[in-house]
Nucleic acid binder design. Structure first.
Length: 280
DNA sequence: CCTTATAACCAGCTCACAAT
DNA sequence: ATTGTGAGCTGGTTATAAGG
């Protein structure tokens, strides 16, 4: 019997942590993934696009994002920043099984959470995060389980904080952000239909030129990038959860051409469509 | 802040066709 | 049935400028 047989054998697949200090950050191509993400900003200020809007996060803020929620850091005015990012899958947190955790802490039903900690909590949170980073680096005995427990503690602390503090509703940066959010929500709802820049511009009474520019400004995505991301995300889900034919799925999420669907799919996910079918 | 416009550039789209 | 490739066209992005 191995003395470490109690340890998760696929640890690297279900958990990762990184601490980065960067002047100019370009996110890798995948803007959604099947893991939870906890993003904590140690220093600086960032603009973050999540799901359908942009939020501004400052040092000391923690964002928790559910799996498969589209997100991206937009170009902020303050390039200097330092952050810690945790990624973990559902099976990493044993308490998630049977939705126990979600039932206890309804806040985690949201697609994402933005938490601005008070100083008292901030110290604890940063301490936990530092220890997670350290454990992941040193890999001492049973570090996997130690990290597991730290992450769980972090989540519990966050949910307690949310129970004690009423989060003020997020403000839009300016009217433009609000209008683009509206358009993004429209896309999220109607991505199955044919969508084009001129059509949306007309529908929302703005010029296509302006929409193109403003969309990029707010979301960090170009219009086409965004529509493709939403469509491919849904396609991936359908591939994993149904037995529908690939060409049928392509049409279902809004592509007229299977060829083109395949190309976009590979560009966004890194794999051809069938890859996700076989995984199951 | 919002809109319109022009123009160069480049990415997306489609199609035909090939490979597996 | 699915994926890949290349050519040619469509159409989005971006910079820039000017005006409401």
């Amino acid at each position: 019997m191995s003395k470490r047989n109690f340890v998760l054998n696929n640890f690297a697949d279900i958990f990762s942590v990184s601490r980065k200090k960067q002047a100019n950050h370009i996110m890798p191509y995948s803007h959604f993934h099947s893991s939870y993400e906890a993003y904590y900003l140690l220093e600086g200020e960032r603009q973050f696009f999540i799901k359908d809007r942009t939020i501004v996060i400052k040092a000391g803020d923690l964002i928790i994002i559910q799996p498969d929620v589209l997100h991206k850091t937009a170009n902020g005015n303050y390039p200097e920043h330092e952050k810690i990012i945790l990624n973990f899958k559902e099976e990493f947190i044993p308490a998630f099984r049977g939705d126990l955790f979600k039932k206890l802490y309804s806040a985690f039903d949201e697609d994402y959470l933005v938490i601005h900690f008070t100083l008292q909590y901030k110290i604890q949170v940063e301490d936990m995060l530092q220890r997670i980073v350290q454990e992941a680096r040193e890999k001492k005995g049973a570090y996997e389980i130690y990290i597991q427990s730290l992450v769980l503690q972090l989540l519990i602390l966050s949910s307690r904080y949310l129970e004690e503090h009423i989060m003020e509703p997020l403000e839009y940066l300016n009217p433009m952000h609000e209008r683009i959010s509206e358009i993004v929500r429209y896309i999220n709802k109607h991505y199955k239909k044919e969508l084009s820049l001129p059509y949306l511009a007309d529908k929302f009474f703005v010029s296509p030129y302006y929409l193109s520019h403003a969309f990029k400004e707010v979301t960090g995505f170009t219009f086409v990038e965004y529509v493709n991301s939403v469509r491919i995300k849904e396609a991936k889900k359908l591939l994993e959860e149904t037995n529908l034919k690939v060409y049928f799925i392509a049409a279902k999420v809004g592509y007229g051409s299977i060829t083109h669907f395949g190309r976009v799919f590979k560009e966004i996910t890194g794999h051809a469509p069938l890859y996700y079918r076989k995984k199951k």
